[in-house]
Write a protein that binds this DNA or RNA. Structure first.
Length: 757
RNA sequence: GGGCGCGUAGCUCAGUGGGAGAGCACUUCGUUGACAUCGAAGGGGUCGCUGGUUCAAUCCCAGCCGCGCCCACCA
């Protein structure tokens, strides 16, 4: 169900997948890959089985890896207990050693007390014994660096079977591990051989078993505290803020638990995986995630891969009657191996456990391509190129694919790991099914269209930053899609069709050479941005080119041409408009696949889907044409601006008088006269030696453009406008003067910067 | 405890060692004219605070304040 929903989302977003090659993790191929890798790693000693302390989820009743455990802050208590000391003859004394615990029930499994070797308070007690209250077990006081003199009383109770640190301390100091819980995390004492070992029968022990046996750990916690208090052995209770490990699926506190599990020697496998990134054979984008990768990989712990679940890849291990282990690909092979071992046919029991789901995922880059078979797909597609994923998956998956890929393929599974942003809800919280704050992409697609959503995600995908989904942005890009659609409609209406063999260099009109220059600049920006995985910059470049250049100016500037009667100009302009549109569609296709493909086929740019090899290249540049049209754009903008500020009615036309212009400017003006008249609402155009009285004046380059507004102009408003402009220019002059009179600026700033000022 | 990141216009966010931009929102004007999901013109920011480096800091460095996330076995 989940899988199909994800597929629908991908398809509706226009993801171009090869759906014929869909693979499921429990398919035949991946199954074989899992067993093969398991067998090899076992044979090499990189997978082993052992009794170790493990994260145990009492609710799911399975072991978990460290990654599946979340630490949640919790306001708890710190209980201080008094453990009576024994003298050298093993008799009780009146002295106590104080220990502190957040989990009193675990005391039933205590087998020692640790103090720091340099802690003077306890130096004399090392090697002596205390008596464990409620139980009567003799527990040894050991010196171990783990004990922190600053923490609690400086003496720490050791429960090797129910605490990770204590397990290590116990191993170092040869303390037995006493498991006092069932897989449900209920206390089990009666008939618990480990618990009863070496403990003398007593009325107190019987009372403890009577009171606690079978209680769940939290009920037992309360009861243990009460019983200690009744005996006067509860010294103190403190409030204590600490973090409690929870299983990420079961949601209940983890119980560190001593069980037999299968482990991967991750430390050994991590070494080449670290080197690959260290030496740049695989890079992370953005690069700072490499630190996260290194930190984890360098401190990696054995990976517990067995799970006591019914669903998953079954561990390919079989046990003989005496517990001998046979790891093989199939039951038949295991039986054959057992026959060789025992010299006779024996009945084998298969390991009940399944593998951590991430084990098979780690093999994905090659297991899906037919490995361990030597297939053409494997040859062609391994190594892959770019892995796109979220940061929360670096440890679970990326790191493990690196390890397994290097181990079995001798080559990194991908050269780049692009860590994309997480889409968060409008408040910035991570979306999760349980929180119910998921924004459904399908709903956004229904409302704004797949292209709008997809473009939004690209436009907001600035590196190293998460995305707070903004509906108004999606709406804005929906408008952009409409804008493009309408621009294409304009082209269609004006018979702007692709012309075979046409290229920008053959255009003669400045306006065409200008848009060609701008289009090719856009191509360069988009290309550079995509190559650097800066998808937001790429999207932004296309967006602004289409809207600000192509639609706002180019299409407006060519209207007089298309409406004129110069057939040669019309032909070249139509071809240019179409070719630029074609370029836009190519560049836009990764961001807006649906609309670009539709327009592409409607315009007959080619009948194939926009293929990657058609990605355009920057080939055209005409800076003279660019300067020419930019002058025009500036002029029209300035006139519009003045008209608006002078409150010239939008429909009213004004005359234009050019004053003090160079011949080049005069020539430009006359050449662009039709467009200026159209776009700036200008009627008569003339030149003069000085501005006519009662006109608004605009400085464009070296020339002054005067708009005679006799009868229209509000002199106060014009005075205000000019004063504002003067003030602005004055302050600019002041700033530059100050800068240029600063000797160290002249001396130290780069020449081009000085010249520019 | 360690690490990463963020703080820029009312909101959501780009960005750069040489006086800062977008979308939305806002103000004014405008619909025979590709597009009102639009066009034209505007208003609005001491670029978190304090120091330092530099001819020049929103950008680099340090400290501080506020916020978010990841990792971690603190009894």
């Amino acid at each position: 169900k989940v899988r199909s929903r994800i597929s629908i989302q991908h398809m509706r977003l226009g993801v171009s997948c090869d759906w014929d090659r869909e693979v499921f993790t429990l398919d035949e191929g991946p199954q074989k890959a899992v067993r093969t890798t398991f067998k090899h790693l076992y044979a090499d000693g990189l997978i082993y089985r052992g009794e170790r302390i493990t994260n145990w989820c009492p609710r799911c009743q399975t072991a978990l890896s460290d990654l599946e455990v979340d630490h949640e802050p919790s306001q708890g208590k710190l209980w201080y207990f008094k453990y009576p000391l024994l003298d050298d003859n093993g008799n009780p004394t009146d002295d106590y050693i104080r220990v502190a615990t957040t989990r009193p029930e675990t005391m039933l499994g205590d087998t020692g007390v640790a103090v720091h070797p340099d802690d003077d308070r306890y130096r004399d007690l090392v090697g002596k014994y205390a008596i464990l209250p409620l139980v009567g077990r003799r527990i040894r006081i050991v010196a171990d660096d783990y004990a922190d003199p600053e923490a609690g009383s400086g003496a720490v109770k050791i429960t090797p079977a129910h605490d990770f640190n204590d397990f290590e301390v116990g191993k170092r100091n040869d303390l037995p591990a006493v498991n006092i819980m069932t897989v449900d995390a209920d206390i089990t004492l009666a008939g618990n051989e480990d618990f009863l070992a070496g403990v003398a029968q007593s009325a107190e022990l019987d009372a403890t078993i009577e009171a606690l046996d079978g209680l769940d750990r939290f009920a037992a916690r309360t009861r243990v505290v009460e019983m200690m208090e009744e005996r006067g052995l509860l010294a103190e209770i403190e409030d204590h803020l600490h973090s409690v490990p929870h299983g990420d699926r079961g949601g209940v506190p983890i119980e560190p638990f001593l069980t037999d599990q299968w482990y991967v020697d991750a430390k050994t496998l991590a070494k080449p995986a670290i080197a690959s990134v260290r030496e740049g054979r695989t890079v992370f984008v953005p690069k700072n995630w490499e630190k996260t990768y290194f930190d984890w990989m360098e401190n990696i712990q054995p990976w517990c891969i067995s799970r006591q679940l019914w669903w998953g890849h079954r561990i390919p291990a079989w046990y003989g009657p005496d517990g001998e282990v046979f790891v093989e690909l199939t039951e038949e092979e295991a039986e054959a191996a057992a026959f060789r071992h025992y010299g006779s046919r024996v009945k084998l029991e298969r390991d009940e456990d399944v593998l951590d789901t991430w084990f098979s995922s780690a093999l994905w880059p090659f297991s899906t391509l037919g490995w361990p078979e030597d297939t053409p797909e494997l040859e062609t597609y391994y190594p892959t190129s770019v892995l796109v994923t979220g940061f929360d998956i670096i440890f679970f998956w990326v790191a493990r694919m690196m390890m397994m890929g290097l181990e079995f393929m001798d080559e990194e599974p991908f050269h780049t790991v692009y860590i994309h942003a997480l889409v968060r809800d409008e408040h910035g919280a991570k979306m999760s099914k349980s929180k119910g704050n998921v924004i459904d992409p399908l709903q956004l697609i229904d409302e704004f269209g797949a292209d709008a959503l997809r473009f939004t995600l690209a436009a907001m995908a600035a590196q190293g930053r998460d995305i707070k989904m903004s509906t108004s942005r999606v709406a804005g890009y929906r408008n952009f899609a409409t804008k493009l659609w309408n621009a294409a409609r304009f082209c269609e209406m004006n018979e702007c069709r692709p012309v075979a063999g046409f290229e920008f260099w053959s255009a003669t009109l400045p306006v065409n050479r200008w848009i060609a220059t701008e289009a090719d600049n856009m191509i360069a920006r988009v290309t550079a941005a995509l190559e650097g995985y800066r998808f937001n910059e790429a999207a932004d470049a296309v967006y602004h080119f289409v809207w600000d250049q192509y639609c706002d100016w180019y299409l407006e500037l060519i209207k007089p041409v298309l409406g004129g009667d110069d057939e040669t100009s019309k032909t070249e302009t139509r071809a240019t408009a179409a070719t630029v549109l074609e370029t836009v569609l190519k560049c836009l296709h990764p961001f807006m696949p649906f609309i670009s493909e539709r327009l592409w086929s409607e315009f007959g740019f080619g009948d194939d889907v926009l293929a990657l090899e058609r990605w355009p290249e920057k080939t055209f540049e005409d800076s003279a044409a660019a300067a020419d049209i930019n002058w025009l754009v500036d002029l029209v903008s300035a006139i519009r601006s003045v008209r608006a500020e002078m409150n010239v009615p939008a429909g009213a036309k004004t005359d234009l008088v050019l004053v003090g212009a160079s011949t080049e400017t005069a020539e430009r003006l006359s050449r662009h006269r039709p467009v200026i008249q159209r776009l700036a609402r200008v009627e008569g155009v003339s030149t003069a030696d000085s501005s006519p009285a009662g006109s608004a004046q605009i400085l464009v380059g070296e020339a002054t453009v005067a708009l005679p507004l006799q009868g229209v102009i509000d002199f106060d408003a014009e005075r205000q406008r000019l004063e504002k402009e003067i003030a602005k220019i004055d302050s600019e002059i002041g700033r530059l003067d100050k800068k240029l009179s600063n000797d160290s600026f002249i001396a130290k700033a780069p020449e081009d910067v000085v010249a520019a000022e």
